[in-house]
Simulated scan of single mutants.
Amino acid sequence: MKYRKKPVVIEAWKFNKEKWNSEISQAKLSDSYPMVLLSIIGGFKPVIETLEGDMVVSDGDYIIQGVNGEYYPCKPDIFHKTYEVVE
């Protein structure tokens, strides 16, 4: 059998590591990316707690809010193949 993905409108943000670093260096949570946490394990990396476990967010990744309010990162090439802008 073949299946087609149901059309769903999602919210997403393009992650900018420099902006995130600047905001968290002021000893606060990031205003731009509150769902991205600072992991001191493995060298102070930005991570998102997902349903599948902690995932590192790289500069340029998209952060997607899923249909149940959860967040997860997506690589830009996969994001652009999967999603298009809604007007």
Rank of each mutant, 00 (worst) to 15 (best):
E49Y: 07
I78C: 12
L37N: 08
L38I: 09
D54P: 05
K81L: 12
Y33I: 02
Q65I: 09
I41K: 13
V56C: 00
S22P: 03
P46E: 06
E23Q: 07
N16M: 13
Y62N: 05
V36K: 02
Y72S: 06
M35S: 09
K19P: 05
I10S: 04
L38M: 08
I10Y: 05
I41N: 14
Y71N: 01
S32N: 03
N68L: 15
Q65F: 09
P7D: 12
I41A: 13
V47L: 07
K17P: 09
V9G: 04
V86R: 13
M1F: 15
Q26P: 00
V47Y: 01
E11Q: 05
E49V: 11
N16Y: 10
F79W: 10
K19T: 11
I41F: 15
S25R: 13
G53S: 03
S58V: 09
I78E: 13
K6S: 14
D61G: 01
M35W: 09
E23R: 08
D61L: 05
G43S: 06
L37G: 06
V67M: 14
I63N: 01
K5M: 08
S25F: 07
E11V: 01
V86P: 08
N68T: 13
E84A: 08
I48T: 00
G42L: 06
P34E: 00
E11D: 05
E52H: 04
T50L: 02
K17G: 04
W20C: 04
H80F: 12
S58W: 08
S25C: 04
I10C: 05
K75H: 11
V85S: 05
V67H: 15
S22C: 10
M1L: 11
A12F: 00
Q26G: 04
S58I: 08
E52Y: 08
D54K: 15
I41P: 06
I24K: 01
Y62S: 03
K6Y: 13
G42Y: 12
C74K: 11
E87C: 09
D31Y: 08
I63G: 02
H80E: 11
M35A: 12
I64Y: 09
K14Y: 10
G60H: 07
P34S: 00
I41V: 14
V67Y: 14
V36N: 06
E49I: 10
W20M: 04
V85Y: 04
K14I: 10
T82M: 07
I24V: 13
T50C: 04
Y71F: 14
K5N: 06
D77T: 13
S22V: 10
E18T: 14
P73H: 03
D61V: 00
V8W: 14
N21H: 14
T82D: 01
M35T: 00
D54L: 12
K14N: 10
D61T: 04
V9Y: 12
E52L: 07
N16P: 07
I63H: 00
W20R: 07
K45C: 11
V47R: 02
E70P: 00
V57R: 05
L38K: 05
V47A: 04
V67I: 14
H80N: 11
D61R: 02
